[in-house]
Design a protein around this nucleic acid. Structure first.
Length: 292
DNA sequence: CCGCGGGCCTGAGAGC
DNA sequence: TGCTCTCAGGCCCGCG
């Protein structure tokens, strides 16, 4: 599901109720998500104070006072919701909404801030893992992640270096988390459109022979910044699964210019029509007229 | 090493 | 209404 803007939206929703609060009780309601939970996963979290809640790419990272980090990934369909524990329910029990959705409430945190935090994930592509902070550099899930697209170090030169020598398309390169970390199918389509660059273009054309950035690389970096910042401001995009932790929907989907707009006229008045085709097994949406 | 395709899961929506 | 089929925002893994 969630790409960087959705994960950042979730982080901002959880931060006020997690940071500085203690996990009074943690509970995992099944033995696995995408992977089996570590031994004593919930017990290891119970009693821990959360010092800070950060994000790396599409991962949420809760810094714990013990020196551990709780790594959380939302997969395709994961979401967090925050409830006030005082809402009618038996003391010591977690509130569960009626209906089938409750069947997918997999992880629960009761916080000293008064919040109950519930992780729900129907498809179970998400996962959580406790890692020692000083072992983060060696963590396979995080190793190899490329630069943060909204970080200071990510610029045209870095993007060009990441794309130089690649024998694949620009679309595939941007989805490759080693090149830049946090983009997914939607925001790649949107960024390429805003940069007027074809998803079929060879990634290596963002660099010259000295691996220096071309103007295309500069345009693309600007477009990535723009689309991510606008999406974060809008609370992310709500297609099927994503909600803010408050339950509100994000609204950036209304600002999509190509994603899910097959057959509609291109918004740049070029006279083109938005088309869709499959690249590496994923839908690409683009305007063949103005993306070159 | 690299790039690609399969697979993991469930649910929503389209078509019949 | 209900069944079947297709597709979905991610990422690990094995193959060539």
């Amino acid at each position: 599901m969630p790409e960087l803007p959705e994960v950042e939206t979730v982080r901002r929703g959880l931060q006020p109720v997690m940071e500085g609060a203690k996990i009074l009780h943690a509970e995992a309601r099944r033995k696995d998500l995408r992977f089996p939970f570590q031994k004593d996963f919930a017990a290891r979290l119970t009693g821990q104070t959360v010092i800070g809640l950060g994000r790396r790419a599409k991962y949420l990272m809760a810094d714990l006072a013990s020196g551990d980090v709780l790594l959380m990934h939302l997969g395709m369909s994961g979401s967090f919701r925050v409830e006030n524990k005082d809402e009618a329910k038996t003391p010591g029990e977690f509130h569960c909404p009626r209906g089938k959705d409750a069947a997918h409430d997999h992880v629960l945190f009761r916080m000293s801030s008064g919040a109950d935090i519930v992780f729900n994930d129907p498809r179970r592509f998400g996962y959580m893992k406790i890692i020692a902070r000083d072992a983060l550099d060696a963590e396979p899930l995080l190793r190899g992640l490329g630069p943060e697209p909204l970080g200071n170090e990510f610029d045209a030169a870095m993007l060009a270096r990441g794309c130089a020598g690649k024998s694949t398309t620009l679309k595939a390169a941007l989805l490759d988390q080693r090149v830049v970390a946090g983009l997914g199918n939607i925001y790649v389509c949107e960024a390429l459109y805003r940069a007027h660059l074809s998803p079929k273009r060879q990634a290596s054309t963002l660099a010259n022979k000295k691996r220096e950035p071309t103007d295309h690389a500069k345009r693309l970096v600007d477009a990535i910044h723009e689309v991510l910042n606008q999406a974060i401001k809008a609370g992310g995009s709500s297609l099927r699964d994503h909600r803010q932790t408050s339950g509100e929907l994000g609204y950036f989907q209304h600002s999509f210019q190509v994603y899910d707009r097959e057959g509609e006229p291109c918004g740049k008045a070029c006279g083109g029509v938005i088309r869709r085709f499959t690249q590496n097994g994923r839908s690409t949406f683009w305007c063949p007229k103005c993306q070159k």
